[in-house]
Amino acid sequence: MSISRSEVTVGMELPSKTFSITRADLVTYAGASGDFNVIHWNERVAVSVGLPNVIAHGMFTMGLAINVVTDWAGGPEFVTDYSCRFTRPVVVPDDEVGASIEVSASVLEVTDAGTAIVSLSAVCEGQTVLGKARAVVRLA
């Protein structure tokens, strides 16, 4: 079920979510997406190219973050546009805890075309990891 226009107001906050990601999650995402870039699973290579450690795929963070919007909107089919910048890497340590990404979102605009423009924020270790993250949601 999509969300109705009458339920949406500018500035409203969507329910936020926190995602914990471990090395195993990076391997799972690599397989699912086909992105096997070594810096996402091999510490030796990641460090050799100047990274502090293995980092998450930017696309993995982007894919997790949109859940905040699709859960609110009623499903992935109601999101017509989604874009972001990858501003900082998410470093994933080799332990059972991994990294934690807090995602929040709010309605920026409700358009005459019957869509809501949502702004997303993703924070890891107190720093924003996605920039200018925006999604367009089709309203009923």
Partner: peptide
């Protein structure tokens, strides 16, 4: 993998 657990 991306925890998109919507039934569709």
């Amino acid at each position: 993998a991306v925890r998109a657990d919507n039934p569709v």
